[in-house]
Amino acid sequence: MYLLKKEMMNVDKLNHVNIPTNSESILRVNNLNVYAGEHHILKNLNVKIPKNKVTVLLGPSGCGKTTLLKCMNRLTDIYKELSVSGSIHIENDNILNTTKNIPSIRQKMGLLGQRPYPLPVSIYKNVAYGIKLKGVRDNKLIDYNIEKHLKEVGLWDEVKDRLHSSPQSLSIGQQQRLCLARGLAVKPRIILADEPTSALDPISSKIIENLFRDLKKHYTIVLVTHVLRQAVRIADNVVFMSNGEIIEQGTPDKLFKNPQSSQLQEYLVDGN
């Protein structure tokens, strides 16, 4: 508990001294239910994701955080056994019930997985992939964007001399940043990150966390994690889940200093 408090004080100094509580929401989840056969995975969830903030989905493993994240960009479609109901609005489109094409909806959200999954092509082509899918054919524009996004994730200086070699030659941390750059290259509004640091060493994790702090100026970030301290370090808004339900949500100040539910109280104690 001591460590947690210490870290919270540091974070307060660092980046969120004034948290605007009623900031505009970019994503709204209403009455979301997900079933896998008979099994009720997500139980009537209602969440608002504030714009240009880091929202952390926190909770023990298996509580449905990742499923919620995958509902947000309809990756649930590829799991034939899942049935999803309710609504998820990004701005004014309900993405669960849309006639618009799903690839363009997904491009509004960049996904960062638990482990880096670079495509089996060169570093250059990895970032170029999404740009080309958007229909850009001008090579100069593609080059410009690749450089821009690799710089955005702080990878440019490390890879500029070997853009055409395989991403397998990079460290896991670098690969994860490459995947982030690849996601940013399609100009998303939201970054969905599913325990993006769980496979990384502490230093690489820190780099990713610092990146998120910078990136939230331009993007909205939804971060799934079960690491309490990570949530404390970078969250502007916390959604605590347990067993497919949302137990509490609000600012980290409110949740961590004054938890209402017994589940969160236990989690805060056990998490340290």
Binding site: Q107, G113, L119, R182, G183, L192
Partner: peptide
């Protein structure tokens, strides 16, 4: 995860 990555890029 690789398939999800590709789909999520669009």
């Amino acid at each position: 995860g690789l398939k999800e990555a590709s789909l999520s890029i669009g």
